[in-house]
């Protein structure tokens, strides 16, 4: 296992000195997870593996733009994997901007005291996921992993659109309330 701090350290070591051993450790931890994550979206094992390889190579390329005060390693890697997946889905289209603006650039007015929260948010979200009901988790996983709009999810689960929306809202609302309570 790799803790959030260890993962962030590895990315920083890549940025500082192109450390290949650090890359291998990150790869061993994240590539199989990204592959599983992409396969939930219906991709075959080979395409999912390609997305995870390309995502990890992007982690290497962009390591210097990672900022642990802005996002946890897993959060940052999530945005890269998400974008790589979209790139590969649209293989012939113009590739989208792989740098996620939010996790790369500091918003001017956001001060240091808020950025301390980035890592905490991730840790807390991980805890809170365990507290969701099975129904809520399924709806959120579908929304995340299957790249579907709410209308498509509603059709798949044979639920009215309003029900899907209210389940997502309920699940996200619980997460948000819990996080906001921490922040105040």
């Amino acid at each position: 296992m790799l803790s959030a701090d260890e993962a962030a350290d590895l990315i920083e070591v890549i940025a500082a000195r192109q450390d290949r051993a650090a890359f291998a450790s990150l790869f061993r931890h994240f590539a199989p997870r990204i592959k599983a994550f992409i396969m939930r979206g219906g991709a075959d094992a080979e395409s999912a593996q390609e997305v995870s390889q390309e995502a990890l190579i992007m982690v290497w390329r962009k390591a210097a733009s990672f900022d642990r005060s802005r996002a946890s390693a897993a959060t940052w890697i999530y945005t890269i994997a998400r974008n790589k997946r979209i790139d590969l889905l649209r293989r012939n289209a113009r590739p989208i901007d792989t740098e996620d603006w939010l996790t790369v650039f500091a918003p001017e007015e956001e001060t240091a005291d808020k950025s301390i929260l980035a890592g905490q948010t991730y840790t807390r979200v991980k805890e809170l996921l365990g507290g969701l009901s099975a129904d809520q988790l399924v709806v959120i996983q579908k929304a995340f992993f299957e790249d579907k709009t709410h209308t498509v999810i509603a059709e798949e689960l044979s639920l009215p659109l309003g029900t899907v929306k209210s389940r997502i809202r309920l699940a996200l609302g619980r997460l948000r309330e819990a996080l906001e309570k921490d922040e105040t």
Binding site: I77, D100, L102, T103, T121, L129, I140, R176, L179
Partner: peptide, 15 residues
Amino acid sequence: VERLHALGGALIERE
């Protein structure tokens, strides 16, 4: 959105 990205990260970590 930052929270949702953290949620995505946490879901990957749980895989």
